[in-house]
């Protein structure tokens, strides 16, 4: 083997290795990235929401509504009806107003932040992603989360219009967002 052939083999090998490494990482497809960019709102922003929670064993869905404030480092989940309740979601966990973070809530908090903030990098790291029509289906990669969450669906073209949290137990939370009331108003 001449040095030139050897060099060629080495270059091709290095390129193949590089391809393989990238293939293993499976970055988000351009369509998914574009979809996330379309959904993403300038931070911070606030939005009203309605939650319809279907729980196995209950004859009817539980309804609640309130306001969601999404910032770069946290999300404030303020439910106004039927019970007034304020949750602060940060990377370290979910914290009810005036209380310590809920035990073991850090992982789910980080995922909710990723979805609500449209953080493509975090979504890529934590979920397997499937795009169908105007909905993105996110399946958790983390085994400890897979035990509780089957998938998260994020729907809406120009913004997140509806999020659906599908639990392994068969429970389902459908959260619909209404941007009208806060249109053009940045949250503080």
């Amino acid at each position: 083997m001449t040095p030139r052939v050897l060099l060629r083999v080495l270059i091709i090998g290095a390129l193949l290795w590089s391809e393989c490494t990238h293939a293993n990482e499976q970055p988000l497809e351009p369509e998914v990235l574009a979809f996330l960019q379309q959904q993403q709102q300038p931070l911070p922003f606030a939005v009203d929401f309605e939650q319809q929670r279907t729980i196995q064993g209950l004859p009817r869905a539980l309804l609640s509504s309130g306001t969601l404030t999404v910032a770069a480092d946290k999300v404030v989940w303020h439910t106004k009806e039927p019970l007034d309740q304020r949750l602060v979601i940060t990377a370290t966990g979910i914290q009810p107003d005036g209380e310590a973070a809920m035990r073991g809530s850090a992982v789910i908090a980080q995922l909710l932040l990723a979805v609500l903030q449209g953080d493509a990098e975090a979504i890529d790291k934590n979920f397997s992603v499937q795009l169908a029509a105007d909905c993105l289906t996110l399946t958790p990669k983390l085994e400890q989360l897979q035990q509780f969450v089957q998938a998260i669906e994020s729907c809406g073209n120009s913004s997140i219009e509806r999020i659906q949290l599908i639990e392994q137990q068969g429970n389902r939370s459908s959260i619909t967002f209404h941007y009208e009331a806060h249109n053009g108003v940045a949250a503080h």
Binding site: Q51, Q56, P82, M102, L165, E167, N171, S173
Partner: peptide, 28 residues
């Protein structure tokens, strides 16, 4: 009631444990 309106998974059978005592026990 507050817990039921939080966006967090529930894993207890609510018919058996309407007050979610088991879930609270695990968290404690």
């Amino acid at each position: 009631q507050q817990r039921l309106q939080q966006p967090l998974p529930l894993w207890v059978d609510i018919q058996q444990d309407p007050l979610l005592l088991s879930q609270r026990l695990v968290e404690a």
